[in-house]
Amino acid sequence: MRRILETLVPAAPLILLFVVWESAARLGWAPPNLLPAPSLVLQRLLELLPDGEFLHHLGQTLIRLLGGFAIALVVGVSLGLLASRTGGGALITVVRVLAPIPKIALYPAFVLIFGYDHASKIALVVADTLFPILLATFHGARAVEPKLLWSAWAAGSGRFASLFTVTLPATLPAILTGCRVALLIACVTVFLAEMISSTDGLGHLLSLAARSFRMVDMFVPLLLISLIGLLLNVALQFARKHLLRGQS
């Protein structure tokens, strides 16, 4: 009983949103040809899911999203750790200059450089997710208790080795928080890139449906990307629980 309640309470606002949206569509508060009922969208999504072509689009989006995130994770954590050590300040100055640039403005350039396929979209996801991960790593690494490092150095760990044996694990909580933000940004970015120029992916499906005024079909990719975001967050929480079992 208690377990059911514990899962229901966080879901309550979602259910409320669903109910409001559903009634808005059903009671004619919003024109049904502009705002389809969520039950219709959900039904359409379930119809499409076994469809091979739809799954292909979903797969393309997931490859770009996860590929870009993975690259940003490796590069961001490495650079963030290096920047946290003496002499790394210069790197952070560069980051402070580059981070506020709207990365979507770079997308036309990415398309010209990397072409219309995966690479340009992955590049955009990397550009957008790199900085939150890098900065979270940098600030987390800076806050590592010096006595942990002293203990490691006294035990015979070298300066470079301690970066991996102490700084990295001690920074993990901050890195995972950065990942949480980055995954959300990745969902938004990959979708935008596919809407702007693509021949496949969920963003492309939305653009296609919008152009031919198929409103239910237009909401299907939106619903799906939000579900993907939700599932990725759950997966991250699961990873966090496992990785930080000794901490916090």
Partner: peptide, 17 residues
């Protein structure tokens, strides 16, 4: 620092992971 001098701190400074 070097392994000829081993520190023990008030805050323990154990590796929590």
């Amino acid at each position: 620092p070097g392994p000829d001098r081993g520190p023990v701190f008030q805050e323990f400074a154990l590796f929590p992971w």
